[in-house]
Design a protein around this nucleic acid. Sequence first.
DNA 1: TATAACTCCTGAAGGC
DNA 2: TGCCTTCAGGAGTTAT
Length: 294
Amino acid sequence: MPELPEVETVREGLERLLLGKTLASITVLHPRAVQRSEGGVEGLVALHGRTVEAVARRGKFLWMEMAGLALNFHLGMSGQLLVSSPGAVAPPHPHERARLRFSDGSHLRFIDQRTFGYIQRSSLTEVPDGAPAGWGTTSTLIPVPVAHIGRDLLDPALDLEELSKRTRKKRTEIKRAMLDQELVSGLGNIYCDEALFRARIHPRRKTNGLSYGSLGGLWEHSTAVLREALAQGGTSFDSLYVDVDGASGYFERSLRAYGRGGQACVRCGATMKKIQFMNRSSTFCPICQPLSRG
DNA sequence: TATAACTCCTGAAGGC
DNA sequence: TGCCTTCAGGAGTTAT
């Protein structure tokens, strides 16, 4: 599943291969992929002739700055963005949802098996704190649909103390808060489980019951997990996540919690427990991550 | 207003 | 072999 490290890997690839190129055409192959776009398919056509001025990211949201407008991408659960070199013939793909052609002949294909991802044209708005809007841009303009998303843990403009304060103010469970993209963006189910395991915090602990020290440690572990995953190109379980060249990441080999329900904890040997939580699975060690002290 | 639950969707995997 | 059910989960929408 594409989370922050996977999306950043894709962003780097798009920046390397498409920055400065001019969009020649967009072909929409599945209406659901563009249903959230301003002006629908016609709105996307208005981007023809515009140049990619930056490829930016905040959390799991990607966008291209194009002369006062943004072309946004969200990969959902299974989205892929594959770039084909000028002149190369991209083979047909059963889940191709849209295709962008650039003036030099290169193509960007949006492939998405489960159709939770989308492409979207939008306007830009000023960020309230005056810092660059996201990774990969120096601009303080952010796409309107991304403006409500919190800064991510790799963003130098993120204030960790302020984040801990806002987390403690919420009266909910810590994993639910970590998955709240308005609080802090970029964390999905996989890296939440890993960070909570490293921080020895039960996913259902109440946020207002955690000390500032515990929360600070949790955010440090979360950041470390994301950095390590990014260094390895992200996590891949199957062909659903690849970078713009079609290559998979390797962080799956480093996972110590996610997907290890029923297996022995690498720290204490206890059996890892898997529970259903927020319509998704959550894996933790009942000994290392107790729900209550003692 | 804040929080929780529901919904969308497809294909792999497992059971029968 | 084929059909059916379950599972995976990001984020917007709806309900409480």
